[in-house]
Write a protein that binds this DNA or RNA. Sequence first.
DNA 1: CTGAAAGCGCTTACAG
DNA 2: CTGAAAGCGCTTACAG
Lengths: 355, 355
Amino acid sequence: MTRIDDVARLAGVSTATVSRALRGLPTVSAATRRRVQAAAEQLQYAVSPSASRLAGGKTGTVAVVVPRITRWFFATVVEAVEEHLHQNGYDLLLHNLGGREQMRRRVLRTASLHKRVDAVILVATPLRPADVTALTKLDLPGVTISSGSEVPGWPCVRIDDVAAARTATRHLLDLGHTRIAHISGDPDDELAFTTHLDRRRGYQEALRAAGLRPDPGLDVESQFTIDGGTRATAELLARGEPPTAIFAACDEMAMGAMTALRDAGLRVPQDVSVIGVDDHDLAGVLGLSTIAQPAAEQGALAARILLDPLGGRAEPYPGLVPVPRGADADGAPPPPVILPTRLVVRESTAPPRAH
Amino acid sequence: MTRIDDVARLAGVSTATVSRALRGLPTVSAATRRRVQAAAEQLQYAVSPSASRLAGGKTGTVAVVVPRITRWFFATVVEAVEEHLHQNGYDLLLHNLGGREQMRRRVLRTASLHKRVDAVILVATPLRPADVTALTKLDLPGVTISSGSEVPGWPCVRIDDVAAARTATRHLLDLGHTRIAHISGDPDDELAFTTHLDRRRGYQEALRAAGLRPDPGLDVESQFTIDGGTRATAELLARGEPPTAIFAACDEMAMGAMTALRDAGLRVPQDVSVIGVDDHDLAGVLGLSTIAQPAAEQGALAARILLDPLGGRAEPYPGLVPVPRGADADGAPPPPVILPTRLVVRESTAPPRAH
DNA sequence: CTGAAAGCGCTTACAG
DNA sequence: CTGAAAGCGCTTACAG
């Protein structure tokens, strides 16, 4: 393997100059830089990341922590983050919690991030006080995506979950539904995040605004997955008279609900309307009405926010107000960047049948 | 940050001993090890990966290259790989090609992997000769998943794509179909992989075995995505009399086909049967018949194969014949490890209507 | 079983 | 604009 001194020798300069020239530092004459680049090229030189990191103190790596890479939202976010990171010369270290509480603890409270990355992007990762403490001690810049994982000094990119849920519920109300069920995340789940609490709040707010009282019998908790949606809906149906509409806290739950309804002999939307949140890739295939949220945009934006101060080559996000960075001493955390959502009406929602 | 000599001082030993004790090398007395561990704990010492890598020559990191993390198969593989890797103390560097040819070149022919990882897992990544050369020059151990990306000396984990396609097609034949269309990957796509060629072969073989001649008019090429399936099916329908059944090369294409059929006013399976390959998470929700392939198992197995010789702590894969490793000089590549597939019949396939 | 010393391959003040 | 030298924080023969 050729090393930096091989290049230095061939170019007739010091290793310090090679280092500066190859990294594009401005304090190198154009002629020298060309000579160094030519030598590096000729020798097929590639810097040793370990040596560079040890000497320079920067890892050129960003950790991305997601609950489950197999879920649509997280995969989409990761894809967008990855693109931005690599475009800017950063590597992406992936941590997938896989839904296991013990794994989250492993990632956040041990040395998995320590001295390994320059920054962290936390996606919908629920944080206990001990996690926040551990994260703060790492003394790294970071960005969170989704609500429920606020870290002091870290910007947060997300949607307005309460508003999204309100819009979904109002859509059902506007169609004439009054028996509207809600299926959502389980707070007893060790990996519970607060997203589902916000979505439930929006659901209840919309009902109340329409003069209806939320009925606990129509509110079932389960996992944020297809199976979770199926199980929640099966339970709902087992409780007695079915609702005329279901607002699922995410599209995957909504899809599970559609399965359970079909298995119970109920038609969507003739017997029961269903709406979710996400605009999953397959929402169109299933004709699922939903509240679309910009997943890729959230990932891209988070990466940008991170990369700007890190010295990435990204241009500033167009129209983005500079995000306050670093723990503002005793100040307030930076305000969240809230991206817009949008009601998408497909075939899964319709007026209730006349009685 | 506490360093190794802080621990050495507190424990009253040399840094060499600390290094050995903390890494669990056998040449340390139990008493010393305990003392070192206690000191490390007390000081909250965590080894500096960069220093360790530079001195030791190992990165403790594995690169995983996938075409698109947003597709079901790849996300599922990555999740399984991630779990094994982290369980064994390895970090996972994610490279998502995002369907762009130029990105593949970037990853495979530049320094993105050079000196950064101890090994590589390549998932369904199409390789040109230049890529193989670059990869070989890296001189790293690796495993490929899926066909179409053979690297000399690297074990390959996959399914039998030809057989899977044969089974799917035979299922349609057995139901009585004779006008069976096929929608598959586009060989003109810069990111084309050979999986779809194998699946087409199986399709044609099954037809021939039934005494039918493959009709080029019933064979449409498109992307391996939902949209690709929709477009391919739309084109198929535009060609004239629709087929009575469609074998899609993957579930995502099959789902796209279902959408296109619905939009054309055709019912599944009454008018057209549809079958895919994968057993996607949502295949059940859509009632899609398919050939199930073990995605997570392929990922887990690839990680295991890689980790064993790397000195991971994984137990040998139960029942796995030791996989030949390293370029066998001028010998043959190691034989692929082929995992079983399984026909799953749901509601999307049925006998054709009587004429 | 343990230690002293060299070395891994860079980057960074510092000096000019 | 460039170089000599120190230093980043470990691991690894080597010797005992």
